[in-house]
Deep mutational scan, measured.
Amino acid sequence: DHIPWITAVLPTVIICVMVFCLILWKW
């Protein structure tokens, strides 16, 4: 059976995008 890697990667991607947007917003 396949491991849904997207389910494991998606939260990390969302957190990175939120942090990236927060850094851009504070500049």
Rank of each mutant, 00 (worst) to 15 (best):
D1K: 08
D1H: 04
D1V: 07
D1R: 11
D1P: 06
D1N: 11
D1T: 05
D1Q: 15
H2L: 13
H2A: 10
H2K: 12
H2F: 08
H2G: 08
H2W: 09
H2E: 04
H2S: 12
H2V: 15
H2P: 12
I3A: 09
I3D: 02
I3N: 06
I3H: 08
I3E: 01
I3F: 13
I3K: 05
I3V: 06
I3T: 14
I3Y: 10
I3W: 03
I3R: 13
P4E: 02
P4F: 15
P4R: 12
P4V: 15
P4Q: 09
P4K: 15
P4D: 05
P4T: 12
P4Y: 14
P4C: 15
P4M: 08
P4A: 10
W5Y: 09
W5P: 11
W5R: 06
W5C: 09
W5A: 04
W5H: 06
W5T: 06
W5N: 13
W5L: 12
W5F: 01
W5E: 11
W5M: 01
I6D: 02
I6K: 02
I6R: 09
I6V: 13
I6E: 02
I6A: 08
I6Y: 03
T7W: 06
T7M: 04
T7E: 03
T7K: 04
T7A: 13
T7L: 12
T7N: 06
T7Q: 15
A8F: 10
A8Y: 04
A8G: 07
A8Q: 07
A8H: 05
A8D: 08
A8R: 11
A8I: 03
A8P: 15
V9D: 01
V9F: 02
V9A: 05
V9M: 15
V9T: 08
L10I: 03
L10H: 07
L10A: 13
L10C: 13
L10K: 03
L10D: 01
L10W: 15
P11L: 14
P11I: 14
P11F: 15
P11H: 09
P11S: 11
P11C: 00
P11E: 01
P11G: 12
P11V: 14
P11A: 14
T12V: 06
T12W: 15
T12G: 14
T12Q: 08
T12C: 10
T12D: 00
T12N: 12
T12I: 05
T12K: 03
T12E: 08
V13P: 07
V13H: 02
V13Q: 03
V13M: 07
V13E: 01
V13L: 14
V13D: 00
V13T: 15
I14Q: 04
I14A: 12
I14K: 02
I14T: 06
I14D: 00
I14E: 01
I14F: 05
I14G: 12
I15T: 11
I15H: 00
I15D: 00
I15C: 02
I15P: 04
I15Q: 00
I15L: 07
I15Y: 01
I15V: 04
I15W: 01
I15M: 09
C16K: 05
C16D: 00
C16H: 10
C16R: 00
C16T: 14
C16E: 01
C16F: 10
C16M: 01
C16L: 06
V17R: 00
V17W: 01
V17L: 08
V17E: 05
V17F: 03
V17S: 11
V17C: 13
V17T: 07
M18A: 10
M18E: 05
M18V: 10
M18Y: 15
M18Q: 02
M18G: 05
M18S: 14
M18W: 01
M18P: 08
M18H: 12
M18T: 12
V19Y: 11
V19Q: 00
V19R: 00
V19W: 02
V19F: 12
V19D: 01
V19C: 06
V19I: 08
V19N: 00
V19A: 08
V19P: 08
V19S: 09
V19L: 15
F20L: 12
F20E: 00
F20K: 04
F20S: 13
F20H: 00
F20D: 00
F20A: 06
F20T: 13
F20R: 00
C21W: 15
C21D: 01
C21M: 03
C21R: 07
C21A: 06
C21Q: 09
C21V: 08
C21T: 07
C21P: 10
C21F: 11
L22C: 06
L22K: 02
L22F: 14
L22Q: 02
L22D: 01
L22A: 10
I23Q: 07
I23S: 05
I23R: 09
I23E: 01
I23V: 07
I23T: 14
I23G: 11
I23H: 10
I23F: 09
I23C: 05
I23N: 03
I23D: 00
L24A: 08
L24N: 13
L24I: 10
L24Q: 11
L24S: 07
L24K: 13
L24V: 14
L24F: 01
L24M: 15
L24D: 07
W25M: 03
W25L: 10
W25P: 04
W25D: 04
W25H: 06
W25C: 15
W25Y: 11
W25G: 10
W25Q: 09
W25R: 10
W25F: 14
K26G: 04
K26M: 15
K26T: 10
K26R: 12
K26Q: 11
K26I: 13
K26V: 14
K26Y: 09
W27S: 09
W27L: 10
W27Y: 14
W27C: 11
W27D: 06
W27M: 05
W27F: 10
W27N: 08
W27H: 04
W27I: 05
W27A: 12
